[in-house]
């Protein structure tokens, strides 16, 4: 259930392009044709699906304050979180080069059409954004991190696919010359983003609230059992 929730949330509500405006540059630059858009979108899904869980492991076992405690008690006080940016970027850049080599080997035609854009995935802020969101939203397990990576990737894929399809059709329309190309794409994306904002309403689903209520109750019950002790201790305050 948690997985399904996170999956759809990351596709629609927290859509990388329309909600957080990440990965805009390649989104605008590579969306002229549906086929290239599909190629780049697939590459983004793939890279996100690998890097988010990988960076989750890095974060949990190396970077977080106290994460090194598996090495022994004396390492528990180390805090390497200042390295997270660099570590995340290094993972991403390595993975991107790997994808580049694989695509070049198995699908030269795709490689040719993606051309210079494959290296650009490394700087696609959606990828680093995925890892940073994973860290800041404190995603709890490796499985959820993978779900989040795949979901965000699919969200990005969906966005670039939609805009590429619209741009192919819009060639037959009579757009003012100065607005052709980039200008109209910006405006269409803006309108699409307004549309996607309506998904935000789904976010306030009752599920999460119920859960927190329950845990809060448990905590209060726990607290109640010891209220006597509090009463004894509050003397200090009066």
């Amino acid at each position: 259930m948690e997985h399904i929730e996170l999956f759809f949330k990351s596709i629609f509500i927290d859509n990388m392009v329309f909600a957080t405006f990440l990965g805009m540059c390649s989104y605008l630059a590579v969306s002229k044709k549906v086929t290239t858009a599909v190629g780049l979108g697939a590459a983004v899904i793939f890279v996100l699906a690998i890097t988010v869980p990988l960076n989750w492991l890095l974060d949990q076992y190396i970077l977080q304050p106290g994460a090194l405690s598996w090495l022994g008690e004396e390492y528990a006080s180390y805090d390497l979180s200042f390295l997270s940016f660099i570590m995340f970027i290094a993972t991403i850049a390595t993975m991107v080069q790997l994808v580049e080599i694989i695509v070049e080997k198995f699908s030269p035609s795709l490689y040719n059409s993606l051309g210079i854009f494959l290296p650009l995935i490394a700087v696609n802020c959606a990828i680093l954004g995925g890892s940073l969101f994973m860290q800041s939203r404190e995603i709890a397990t490796l499985g959820l991190a993978t779900t989040y990576g795949v979901g965000s990737g699919i969200g990005w894929f969906l966005a670039i696919l939609a805009i590429a399809a619209i741009r192919e059709k819009i060639r037959y329309s009579n757009v003012p010359p100065a607005l052709r190309g980039l200008g109209i794409t910006f405006i269409i994306t803006g309108l699409m983003a307004i549309g996607f904002m309506s998904f935000g309403g789904m976010l306030t689903g009752g599920d999460e609230e119920e859960k927190t209520e329950k845990t809060a109750q448990i905590e209060t019950v726990k607290d109640n059992s010891t209220t006597k002790e509090i009463a004894n201790n509050t003397k200090v305050i009066d």
Partner: peptide, 13 residues
């Protein structure tokens, strides 16, 4: 919400 018991106590006192 976690502080509620503390304040209830304060009141009871």
């Amino acid at each position: 919400k976690l502080y509620l018991p503390y304040f209830q106590n304060l009141k009871n006192k």
